[in-house]
């Protein structure tokens, strides 16, 4: 059975990974290659890396950066930021990316989706949509890093992207970004109705409980989060261990240390083991996995 993917969304600004809050404020996290290395070891299912300065500066995400991070990335890597041509997609894939993510261009030049799909296949073309709730309750798609109103609903843009040959849609909520108030379920549902492409939900995750709430209410293909992964040791493994308790058939949890035998508190954090179980572990043999 196909599993629900847990995806880390890494926001790059000035060449480093940052925490993004409401598309307005940014806090430094660290080097992209180190972040990727850790997430890979913790059993993340996929990594999306977007350079948010690129479009504004009229350039494409740096292929050299992709080369560096891809060295330690043995999970799929989607990259985005300022991509405007098939040649750039070609260079990025040659540098170690597996898919590309289009945002501004998906609206201003949707034929790039079509051209990209013709050369690289639809499965390579991810369209990422940033949406904001309007006063009338509808969801509008924004481009240029959440600055420009497209006057199009997020759901309509997703439908259009599908018609142009996109292979996946990533929906991000500008209102929820970095605010830890949970995924915007209404927004996500509006896209699930208009497209039958795999949908990745992003924006608002606080902890594994937010992810559980998302899976309970929507049939998304993947759960993405940014900030959550940066501030908790083994974040990806712990989130999966928590989710697999509620959705045992739908989560890939096959890393050697999988936190299966831990308990969780009401915030989805792991709880210290009982003294006697810690004592029993003292003499356990943990062989190194040889490949």
């Amino acid at each position: 059975m196909l599993k629900k993917r847990l995806i880390a969304s890494l926001v790059i600004k000035n060449g480093i990974v940052v925490q993004s809050i409401g598309f307005e404020r940014y806090l430094p996290i660290g080097k992209p290659e180190i972040t990727v290395d850790y997430l890979n070891q913790w059993g993340i299912d996929e990594i999306i890396m977007v350079d948010i300065d690129a479009t504004r500066e009229g350039r494409c995400i740096d292929p050299e950066l992709i080369k560096r991070v891809a060295k330690r990335c043995f999970v799929p890597l989607s990259v985005g930021g300022g991509i405007t041509s098939v040649d750039q997609i070609h260079t990025l894939i040659h540098s170690g990316a597996d898919k590309v993510s289009l945002n501004t261009q998906a609206f201003t030049n949707p034929s790039l989706i079509e051209e990209g799909a013709r050369f690289f296949g639809s499965q390579c073309m991810v369209v990422s949509i940033d949406a904001k709730r309007s006063p009338d309750g509808s969801y509008r798609a924004y481009t240029h890093g959440g600055k420009t109103d497209t006057a199009l609903s997020a759901a309509a843009l997703a439908e259009q992207a599908q018609a142009y040959g996109a292979g996946e849609i990533l929906i991000n909520s500008i209102d929820r970004d970095g605010h830890k108030n949970g995924y915007d379920i209404d927004l996500i549902r509006s896209l699930l109705r208009t497209t039958n492409l795999p949908l990745i939900a992003l924006g608002g995750a606080k902890d594994p409980l937010s992810m559980k709430a998302l899976l309970e209410s929507c049939d998304v293909s993947a759960i993405a989060a940014g900030n959550y992964f940066h501030f908790v040791e083994h974040s990806a493994t712990i989130a999966k261990a928590y989710l697999s308790r509620y959705f045992p058939e739908q989560i890939r949890l096959d890393s050697y240390s999988d936190y299966r035998d831990f308990s969780f508190d009401e915030m989805g954090r792991i709880v210290k083991k009982e003294d006697n179980s810690l004592r029993d572990m003292l003499f356990e043999f943990h062989p190194k996995e040889v490949i």
């Binding site: 059975m1 196909l2 599993k3 629900k4 993917r5 299912d45 639809s122 499965q123 292979g167 996946e168 039958n196 492409l197 795999p198 949908l199 293909s221 993947a222 890939r252």
Partner: peptide, 9 residues
């Protein structure tokens, strides 16, 4: 949903 994208056993 198509493509078939993700981790499968």
């Amino acid at each position: 949903r198509v493509p078939h994208v993700g981790w499968n056993d």
